[in-house]
Design a protein around this nucleic acid. Structure first.
Lengths: 232, 232
DNA sequence: CGCTCCGTTGAAACGGTTCAACCCACGTGG
DNA sequence: CCACGTGGGTTGAACCGTTTCAACGGAGCG
């Protein structure tokens, strides 16, 4: 396990552990556990006691809420190097949402007590943790803005531009989730998403080919995302 | 200023500083500044550089986002003892929302650099900060759930029950904000809120008398909040 | 082949917003 | 003292985006 932690530290960017000293990794290596999950497997449920948190090693994890009628709202999608479930380490309230492996996934699990002890000793680790949580709060604030202040075309445009920003080729996007999942991420349903995608295609803003999307008119998308234009 | 910090520490619960030692307060007292704001005055704008954060001493502060058409979504309402703007201390991204004094308000301002230095030295303070931010993330997750998974009657019911939970008399509530503000908090508009309040009144669930609301049928409200019942 | 899952399309229904009018309490100034 | 304007709150009718329900096509797979 020690080697794998070093591997992780060397090859994958883990914001939580950025800039830590080698001896930190040795300490971490002593306490982490590796867990693996099959596609669709639930990692934890809302309300479960949070006795530790996770770091994605490979695969993808979906954090989501679910209504009494079964509609789901995705809060986060996490990939390799990202951590989730940390919140519950510091609140006694249990996990605030569900976590599920979207594909076959392996995670590192860090038990609560050990980690709290590490953090208590080490201000640098605490600072990293504060940075990660601050960033997450920032994202939540943006998500709330999107969900409550924009209509679906606006949210979709914002998401496409966001994807474009972190894609190797900013014009050619590859959706990392199914369109059903994308709908849940945008707080809507597959039918609505489908309609809006085809509308945007008809207007020449994008070209949607399965899970690949080409961006044709970025300025127009930007205006829709900002709520300056409505979609005809 | 030193005395006021000690006052604050002794008489008001500040989650951020809970359980700290007297010498911490002495250090804090050396770096804080007191600022006051008139009713309606803006404390910071979205995007402003965050070179410090605030603790409400007296009054009430509203944290909110605003759409291009002017519709506002309230993210938080903070009263005495609560802190806001801490996120920006750890992200270089500026404030993620607006802050405005809802009434005449005084705040303590803690400059970024000094506080980071304090935290770096003191794991206990860092742990408190992590707890506060974790709690806030938890609340955000709930807010997102409310906004995207529940309809307005559900959100309103949840809010009324929440108020009931922290009211001296659980049956007789006093709204701490105007109904216009409450609408913004629930992610809707005053008209809709007014209609739903009167519907609930007609059904005998509540009795709304200006800013005072009596809860008559808590179980029914609970079912609406949970999405188990729809409102006729 | 028949099954399921995903995505798409159409028509009807719904919840919420928009727009407009109105009431009432309150403060101001003639 | 009353006329007047103002802001918060309420109500009604039309409108709009989204969801719902239903049906269908295609891809993948036993």
């Amino acid at each position: 396990m020690l080697e794998s932690m070093n591997d992780l530290g060397k090859h994958t960017v883990i914001p939580l552990f950025e800039g830590l000293q080698p001896n930190h990794f040795e300490n971490l290596a002593r306490i982490v556990l590796r867990k693996s999950y099959r596609r669709g497997e639930i990692i934890f449920m809302e309300g479960d006691e949070g006795n530790g948190f996770y770091i994605v090693e490979t695969g993808q994890v979906k954090i989501y809420k679910i209504s009494s009628e079964g509609k789901e709202q995705i809060l986060h999608l996490f990939g390799p190097g990202e951590s989730f479930g940390e919140v519950s380490v510091f609140t006694g309230h249990g996990f605030p949402a569900f976590a599920k492996a979207n594909v076959g996934t392996t995670c590192l699990f860090i038990p609560r007590a050990d980690f709290v002890e590490m953090i208590r000793r080490d201000p640098a680790l605490a600072m990293n943790m504060l940075g990660v949580m601050a960033l997450r709060l920032h994202r939540f604030a943006d998500l709330i803005e999107d969900l409550s202040l924009k209509e679906v075309p606006g949210r979709l445009s914002a998401y496409l531009l966001y994807l474009s920003g972190k894609s190797p080729d900013p014009e050619h996007l590859e959706l990392d989730v199914s369109k059903n999942q994308l709908a849940a991420l945008l707080g809507t349903i597959p039918e609505t998403l489908s309609r809006i995608l085809s509308r945007m295609g008809r207007l020449g803003l994008i070209k949607s080919e399965g899970s690949r999307i080409r961006i044709l008119d970025r300025p127009a998308l930007q205006k829709i995302a900002d709520g300056e234009t409505r979609i005809p």
